[in-house]
């Protein structure tokens, strides 16, 4: 366990050093993050200019809490997981993945933590900022118990999303040329910016059960607002745990079928 923690720390330091080597780029990324945060919230600002609700049960403060979760989860994943997965696809193609497998550490761990994008920190701060704004709109901070539950479910949401990335990564063992699957996943995750109640009929079912974006943002946001009942809390935690187990199984199955590109 301690060994793995030390590995993470080393990889974070290497990534930070790389990022700092391009200081102008770092500042540009910060400015861009700000532009995109503003851009992402524009529809909410416009909608609430003439309306009290965007969906049944979702007023301005609530919708901004969901948006805050969306930005936070995305910042974490784009900062931690997706650069590593993009790396993985490249390594499978070039055959360098063999070296990862040879290392005396779990391969899934190695590919999930191989690279970070430190400037996603700006996006993370933006996400937190939107959350603070939401509770300022509501006029009351979240109760301590709700805050704790909201943070636990944030973790569950991140794990759920992470599991989908891992399944995608496993898919690249078979279809190497599909390195843009990662972008497709990101594009699908874009729906998580709205409360799930925005979607109707079939789409709501799809985004709750098939691609469970509701688990990633809507339910944690409801928990933070103190509106999530116990059944949903358990379903969210259970769903995230289930996805993690499935992802692990798919990963181990895929790796057993791995045929190196180099030899």
């Amino acid at each position: 366990m301690i060994r793995y923690a030390r590995l993470v720390w080393i990889q974070v330091r290497v990534s930070a050093a790389t990022a700092m080597a391009y200081r102008a780029n770092f500042i540009a990324q910060g400015a861009m993050a700000l532009v995109f945060i503003v851009l992402t919230v524009v529809p909410l600002l416009v909608a609430f200019g003439g309306q009290a609700k965007v969906a049944p049960g979702w007023d301005e403060a609530g919708a901004f809490v969901v948006m805050s979760y969306f930005m936070t989860v995305r910042a974490i994943l784009e900062g931690v997981t997706s650069p590593s997965i993009v790396d993985l696809v490249e390594r499978i193609r070039s055959g360098a993945f063999d070296y990862v497998l040879l290392k005396p550490a779990d391969a899934q761990f190695m590919v999930s933590t191989s690279r970070y994008e430190p400037w996603k920190l700006f996006d993370l701060l933006g996400g937190i900022g939107v959350g603070v704004y939401a509770f300022w709109l509501r006029g009351a901070p979240p109760a301590p118990a709700d805050l704790a539950l909201g943070l636990v479910l944030l973790f569950a949401g991140v794990l759920a999303m992470y599991s989908m990335w891992i399944v995608c990564a496993a898919a690249s063992f078979w279809v190497v040329r599909l390195d843009n699957l990662v972008y497709l996943l990101g594009a699908i995750f874009d729906v998580a910016r709205w409360p799930i109640q925005v979607f109707q009929g079939l789409w709501r079912i799809v985004f709750t059960f098939v691609i469970p974006v509701a688990v990633m943002t809507t339910f944690p946001a409801m928990a933070l607002l103190g509106r999530l009942d116990l059944a949903h809390v358990l379903a969210t935690l259970g769903g995230a745990a289930l996805m993690l187990v499935v992802a692990r199984l798919v990963w181990t199955f895929a790796i057993r079928n791995y045929t190196s590109a180099s030899s």
Binding site: P43, A47, V54, A55, V175, R177, L178, D179, N180, L181, Y183, L184, G186, A187, I188, D190, V191, R193, W194, Q197, V198, F199, Q200, W203
Partner: peptide, 22 residues
Amino acid sequence: AEFLVWTLTTTIPLIMLAFWTS
């Protein structure tokens, strides 16, 4: 195949559709 995936990544109009109809 890559091309098809790129085409499918254009989700913003549909995401905005869901939001504004709601």
